[in-house]
Amino acid sequence: MQRFSLQDTFLIKKFKKLDRHQDEDKRTYFEIIFIEEGKGKHFINEFIISYNAGDIFLIAPDDTHWFEINEITTFCYFQFTESLFSSKMNLPDRSYWLHRIERIIQNPNLIPGDVITADSDKELIWQIHNAIVLEYEMAKEFYKHNISNMVSTTLSIIARNITRDLKPRSVSSRKDQHTTIDDILNYIRQHVYDRDKMKVAAIAERLSMTSSGLSAYFKKKTGDSLHHYIIMYKLHLVKYRLKNTDFTVSEIAYQLGFTDESHLTRIFKKYNEMTPKQYKTKEDEVLEDDITLTK
């Protein structure tokens, strides 16, 4: 079976298993796993999920997972890195696409299990799956571009299904229910790109709390201030975009709600002891060195 290498951006593996299956290598890539037939249990991080034919799983590089198989199972793995979505691939409205899928692709198992809950979406993704396999096998002109766009569409559909399950309860359904730390974190992940919605007063209003009460509760539960957590989460997304896209520092500052490039640079350097441009240069050099080692 072909192994995923540093030069690969996309690889398909299809195989059958009769008993336990676990990835042999440490992963540096994402996987979309399609269960074509069979049933059993999927162990993902600390969760155990039953699986059946037709289920789809999204696995991040840091996830630990394996399958205990009850009935012979046919797996189809799509393995890919973020490089598949390089801006050189000319995805339409890349910034908007990143807004939709970024927190999902970094935290796909906030809600573990089959990632598609809507029947119509599941049917659509399996149709796209078939088209991707065909493009991959035929390898005709522009097939990499076509696969990139179809995987992008697949992730967008996965994102809307997971986001639907992660949406905070409405204000009306919140009566007589206490806000949890998960409510706050989910709100931040959903609205991190909107500067106004990231103000403490706006978060408190959305969660039916006072600003002081929200700040005190967050500090008690996490040991961190809400303001500092939001900054660090934004900087995490900044690093992701510097490493995996060709956006300029100015563009990233605008996308993530910083006043301007100088504001982002000042905050970034405070916590990372280097500027965003220096960070990007460093990461590009590391990637080039890794590719050279595999040649």
Score class of each variant (00 low, 15 high):
A159C: 06
K144G: 07
K144T: 10
S170T: 15
K140W: 08
R164H: 13
N161G: 02
L166N: 02
I147G: 02
A139L: 06
S152I: 03
R169V: 10
N146A: 12
S156L: 09
M150W: 05
S172N: 12
M150A: 07
T154N: 00
P168I: 14
R160G: 02
H145Q: 15
A159W: 03
E141G: 03
V171G: 05
S152K: 08
I162P: 03
I147R: 00
N146H: 12
I162D: 00
H145A: 08
S172H: 11
R169F: 09
S148M: 04
L155D: 03
R174Y: 04
N149L: 14
S170Y: 08
R169M: 12
S148G: 10
S156W: 06
R164W: 03
A139C: 07
N161A: 02
Y143P: 06
S173L: 14
S173I: 12
T163Q: 14
S148H: 01
S148Q: 05
P168G: 06
Y143F: 15
S156I: 06
R174P: 00
S172T: 15
K167W: 07
N161V: 02
F142I: 09
L166A: 02
N161M: 01
A159D: 02
R164S: 13
Y143H: 10
K140M: 10
L166D: 00
A139K: 13
